[in-house]
Design a protein around this nucleic acid. Structure first.
Length: 590
DNA sequence: CCCTGGAGCGC
DNA sequence: AGGCGCTCCAGGG
């Protein structure tokens, strides 16, 4: 169906032109009436041709689906290959006369397969809700359609394991149920695409970077930044502001890549190549006076602007090209800082427009635009440190993080000079135990530090991020606190938990229950710490008795670990428990 | 006892 | 097919 690029299509949009076709080999059985049209065709070969004919009739510009690129299209191509479907290229708009076998093999590399999928649907924009959800909802733990529908759309959609599907295909009722489920899943994918504003957002991202829309839809963050910067450098050389025709930075790194001789790491993360953010040693404990949290806004983009860090400005040591120095203050603004400044200014302008409009459609468009500006600005640093990026510049990435550490350190020093008790900080934030319980005084203290810090910088900017009335600080990156959500409503508290076992999905239910009870006692009960501890001890003692008495369901003990690659790809002799379990599961044919 | 992977967080 | 920092667990020697 036609889908407006902006605005929300209704479910009717889909339903109006929606119909399902089912292949029912053998006896031609009557499908019971459901909420949509169902046509029966005699074989899979006919079904595939029916789909292609339908696609050609509809001529869709956009294909939407969950795991469209990694799953759906690939599966279709695989079946068309088996059935020898000649008009396979009608999936897209590029007419191909070659036999599918020649274009789409089964035993190709991941890259080659992805490229076959691209070719097959060329001319239509692939909107894969799985790929986009991974990019736009980084905090989600489960990217299955059913999980995303539940968390984002508050809808329950069915999902089936492949074994269940093959069973259902043998009965009329089963097929009917599957068709109904397919309709709901299809609708959920469309709603998810609309909910995440995938089409308008990727359009904005593409307009900002000047790359190809279909590539933005496939993820490819580094490529977007490559285009953004290449356009910018090209403009500069044309207008003569930079005395070079083109810039292709030398890719330099301080140390050579660790030899990949032992086991090629296909998926798991490489060891860090350079130093990153500073994490302060926490002063551990339970705080019951107001804690003030201050944050630097967009730390790394701001640092690039503040110190004018660019390929065109940093000073390279002629002896050691990997060694660079910050440019002089008199140096004119480089290209990287200027791109960032422009993105930030545009975002500020969009945000101010939002304040003066009430038109919901326009508001939605502006919201999408400001998000695209933010995502683009925030991606630039990451690409400087990304080895396969065209603009990989490890010395510059290191310079950015070094300035970040310096900025946080100096801010902590200033706060301590002001007799403030800095109890923790991570990369761009610091937490101060004010020793106060009067919100206005706490905010005044924060405002004082903020003013002093911001006076020192042109672009860098610190802000009060929040006030907590109670905080349990356990380790680096592990804490829980009661936050005053809105400084105008100081009685409304919201619990915030970072890094604790409670927020980790790999721990078992039993552990979560114990954590939940303990945290509730400490932060949420209003009890004195001693009493809370007594209750916790009591709870844990009883729990231990239940565990020892084998009185709890085995389900409560289940822990979850995932593999980041195929079990065979782990080094020889790997005896890690979860890899062992994977091998055993394979043995049992799971 | 020290070290290294591996996973899953935080930023 | 952006980055690094920091637990915490297991296993090897």
């Amino acid at each position: 169906p036609e889908l407006p690029v902006t605005g929300a299509p209704s479910a009717e949009h889909l339903r109006k032109s929606s119909s399902f076709t089912v292949a029912c080999p053998g006896t031609r059985q009557t499908m019971p009436k459901v909420s949509f049209d169902v046509e029966c065709v005699p074989s899979e070969a006919v079904l595939l041709n029916f789909l292609l004919a339908k696609l050609q009739r509809l001529e869709p510009d956009i294909l939407i689906g969950h795991d469209l690129l990694g799953g759906i299209v690939e599966k279709l191509l695989a079946r068309m290959r088996v059935r020898g479907t000649s008009k396979w290229s009608r999936l897209g708009r590029l007419v191909r006369s070659k036999h599918l076998t020649e274009v789409f093999g089964t035993s190709k590399s991941m890259y080659a397969r992805a490229s076959s999928v691209s070719v097959a649907i060329s001319g239509r924009l692939p909107c894969d809700t799985y790929i986009q959800a991974r990019e736009l909802l980084p905090k989600a733990k489960d990217y299955s359609l059913a999980a995303l529908a539940e968390s984002e759309l508050k809808e329950i959609v069915p999902s089936f394991k492949s074994k269940a599907i093959s069973n259902m295909l043998s009965t009329v009722d089963g097929v009917t149920e599957l068709v109904g489920a397919s309709e709901r899943r299809t609708e959920a994918a469309l709603k998810l695409a609309v909910h995440l504003s995938i089409i308008p957002l990727t359009k904005q991202l593409t307009n900002l970077s000047g790359n190809v829309w279909s590539r933005t839809l496939r993820g490819m963050r580094a490529e977007r930044i490559e285009y953004l910067l290449s356009h910018e450098f090209s403009k500069e050389s044309v207008s003569g502001l930079v005395d070079v025709k083109f810039i292709l930075p030398d890719k330099l790194r301080k140390s050579d890549k660790p030899t990949t001789g032992a086991g090629t790491k296909t998926t798991s993360r490489r060891k860090a190549q350079y130093a990153g953010g500073l994490v302060l040693e926490p002063k551990r404990g339970l705080y019951d006076h107001h804690i003030l949290q201050l944050d630097f806004n967009s730390l790394y983009p701001s640092i690039i602007q503040e110190y004018n860090i660019c390929f065109t400005t940093v000073l390279q040591d002629s002896e050691e090209p990997a060694k660079i120095k910050l440019p002089e203050a008199s140096e004119k603004e480089g290209i990287l800082p200027r791109v960032l400044r422009r993105l930030v200014e545009q975002r500020r302008s969009v945000k101010s427009q939002m304040k003066s409009t009430k038109n919901p459609l326009l508001l939605k468009q502006l919201e999408t635009r400001q998000l695209a500006l933010k995502l683009t600005a925030n991606s630039i640093y990451g690409c400087l440190g990304f080895e396969n990026s065209r603009y990989f510049a490890q010395p510059m990435a290191e310079m950015v993080t070094a300035q970040g550490r310096d900025t946080l350190m100096k801010t902590v020093e200033l706060a301590r000079e002001k007799q403030m008790d800095v109890i923790y900080g991570d990369t761009d934030s610091l937490f101060i135990n004010t020793g106060l319980t009067e919100l206005p005084m706490v905010v005044a203290q924060g405002a004082d530090l903020k003013k002093e810090v911001n006076r020192r910088y042109r672009t860098l900017e610190i802000e009060i991020d929040g006030v907590y009335v109670k905080m349990l600080l356990l380790r680096k990156k592990k804490y829980a606190a009661m936050r005053i959500q809105n400084l105008r409503m100081p009685d409304h508290l919201v619990r915030e938990v970072k890094g604790l076992d409670l927020v980790r999905h790999d721990w078992c239910d039993l552990s979560h229950e114990a954590s939940e009870y303990s945290l509730q006692q400490i932060l949420g009960s209003g009890l004195r710490p001693d009493d809370a501890v007594a209750n916790i001890l009591d709870f844990l003692t009883q729990l231990a008795a239940k565990v020892r008495g084998n009185m709890l369901s085995l389900k409560k003990y289940i822990i979850t670990k995932s593999l980041t690659k195929m079990p065979e790809e782990y080094p020889d002799g790997t005896t890690t428990p979860h890899v062992k379990v994977a091998f055993r599961a394979k043995q049992f044919g799971k």
